[in-house]
Design a protein around this nucleic acid. Structure first.
Lengths: 252, 252
DNA sequence: CCTATTCTTGCACGTTTCTGCATGTATGGT
DNA sequence: ACCATACATGCAGAAACGTGCAAGAATAGG
């Protein structure tokens, strides 16, 4: 029995029966309950199920679909996400960008944290629906399919009407010379609009983004408060960034 | 029996029957009354029910509506949804309301239909992400957790800037005298705003909604083009609606 | 091809959480 | 005022949980 088989089996059960009981599955498949629990824990960490005492329940289909397609669960992203989640203060207002790293942040937020979350990503909004204390505000606009977020003039305009303590921004490239970059001009504009509405802006970038550049500049270094990454603090590029005066928070 | 299942069962009872009697539930599920009381206490602490001597009552129509919608996923909605999906013309613009019936419509739309979909539901937006030919426009605003849609002043305002050929509206009650109703005032206002922006508005109502009324009026009969339901066309209430001049499309 | 390392899996242990019962108290009806 | 029922609390057994550990499998490196 391969681990991937177990995972599929569990996801199948969740889809077909709406629940999974750890004990039953263990008996059915002839494996230990510990393995089932471990699998469920991992699936829950990826946002593919909701862990409950005794087993697990499905999360909303939209979230599952999306999370299954993207690999939210890469270790680097998870580390960055929990470091970022630690910056969110109870009662504060948070602007959360789209993208898988930001989605990981949403999953890393404590379930009963009382805060306001502003986002242009329907996926992130869906992921936070079960946070009873969280106030959600969705920025509307034309949906860009490849990144599944609202962008464009309407979204940027909607962003003008909010303000927040903290903005967590995902980018696809962090390069000492090219700066913070992303692959789409509309997305870059949207990120700029979001960052402009927060007192502090931190950029999330798992290690593979460090030292790379995409096509469109998002922001100059001066506009951001810091960078959160799991890259080695003594990495050459990271050292360069620090030399530019950038605060680098290590997520490890 | 998982704790979460008991919770769902209780919420379902609250929604369907409007009350829960601790003793009866304990007998039905074969668990102790103490467990039921504990669950009800927890639900009340989360604001999902109102604890009374001997059991519990629903706290607000909106919550009840949502819990009920969560628990049911029946055939009727699918029938209504595919009948509604057939109204959508290629190249057209569709306003899709939130709610599970509307979500079913989203799933019923052909995968490569070229059309523009405007919605205030992040869930529906997420469901349509894999329709490559569909243009999506999301109306933003404060997210109402109970129904997982954007409502409130910002959302209504955003709706003013769109227009469409067709609006498909879900409601929780269709009653000859009370009209089209739903459980939450903000949702009702949002639905009104959506309907006002479309040339044609059709109301989706699976059979169990027919003849029932919720607390808030959405629209008068004159404002809608027709009703799509899987109820028996010779049902007494349906006949009454037809007598009012309403076009009733049978989904079967 | 062999060895070292990492990963996975199941087991054992201590800890936490749940659940039903028993007791005493509070509530509502008669 | 009385009684039946519902309630809160404490308790104990059971179930589920997390963690550390060791044996085996898979992988990487020589």
């Amino acid at each position: 029995m391969l681990a991937a088989e177990r995972r599929d089996h569990l996801l199948g059960l969740l889809a077909r029966e709406g629940k999974v009981v750890a004990k039953d599955v263990a008996a059915d498949l002839g494996i230990s309950e510990d393995s089932v629990r471990r699998d469920l824990r991992d699936l829950a960490a990826e946002g593919l199920c909701q862990r409950v005492y005794g087993g697990a329940l499905p999360v909303s289909p939209a979230v599952v679909d999306y999370a299954a397609r993207q690999s939210v669960a890469q270790d680097g992203k998870r580390k960055v996400a929990s470091a970022a989640a630690a910056l969110v203060r109870p009662g504060g207002t948070l602007i959360l960008d789209g993208g898988t790293t930001a989605l990981a942040v949403a999953h890393a937020l404590p379930r009963d944290l009382a805060c306001t979350v502003i986002t242009h990503s329907p996926t992130i909004a869906a992921a936070l629906l079960d946070h009873p204390q969280a106030e959600l505000f969705l920025l509307g606009g034309r949906i860009f399919k490849h990144s599944a977020v609202a962008c464009g003039a309407a979204a940027v305009e909607a962003a003008q009407n909010v303000s927040a303590d903290l903005c967590l921004l995902g980018v696809t490239g962090v390069h000492p010379e090219a700066g913070l970059t992303t692959g789409d001009a509309e997305e870059a504009a949207m990120k700029r609009a979001l960052a402009a509405r927060a007192a502090d802006t931190y950029v999330l970038a798992s290690s593979e983004k460090i030292g790379t550049a995409s096509r469109f500049r998002v922001l100059p270094w001066e506009k951001i408060s810091g960078l959160i990454t799991d890259a080695d603090p003594h990495d050459a590029v990271v050292e360069q960034l620090k030399a530019l005066g950038l605060e680098v928070l290590s997520a490890n």
